[in-house]
């Protein structure tokens, strides 16, 4: 059994779908910070079977929107003096700019780089977004 010590002040991102932890880790730029960070992969979970967890010491804010776009099921626990003082569930925003990159090679955004990548939410239940230019779909947690 792997043991990771608890953090004193910081953030724990819990209930990450197993396998997505590494993506969140890099998206948040945690490979470049100088504070203590733990990425736990494939932890046992009674609810999810397997899950990933990220613990970040010494920070109080992260880009919740971006987290929602990778895995909307995560829970963000804000820790102060080793206690959870707040739990945050990310919500999918109606419109996102420059957070999702259109994967359609025929999309104009692949050619004209000054154009912002704009996606709008079309199906909250399934986490589905649509490119504002070419209509390509992006499904949160799958794409």
């Amino acid at each position: 059994m792997l043991t990771i010590t608890s953090i004193r002040n910081g953030i724990v991102i819990d209930h990450i779908h197993a396998g997505l932890g590494i993506r969140i880790f890099y998206q948040l730029g945690l490979d470049k910070v100088d504070t203590s960070v733990a990425l736990i992969m494939n932890a046992t979970s009674t609810r999810m079977g397997r899950k990933d967890i990220i613990k970040i010491e010494g920070t109080s804010g992260i880009d919740v929107t971006m987290l929602a776009l990778i895995d909307p099921n995560v829970t963000i626990n804000v820790i102060e003096d080793e206690h959870v003082v707040r739990k945050v569930k990310p919500e999918l925003p109606e419109r996102v700019e420059n957070l999702i990159v259109c994967k359609n090679p025929r999309c104009i955004t692949s050619l004209e780089k000054y154009v912002p990548q704009v996606f709008t939410l079309v199906d909250r239940e399934h986490g589905q977004y649509r490119c504002a230019y070419c209509d390509e779909l992006y499904t949160v947690g799958k794409d």
Partner: peptide, 10 residues
């Protein structure tokens, strides 16, 4: 007319 999708929107 443009080969890239969404060009007229821009």
């Amino acid at each position: 007319r443009h080969p890239k999708e969404g060009a007229p929107r821009i």
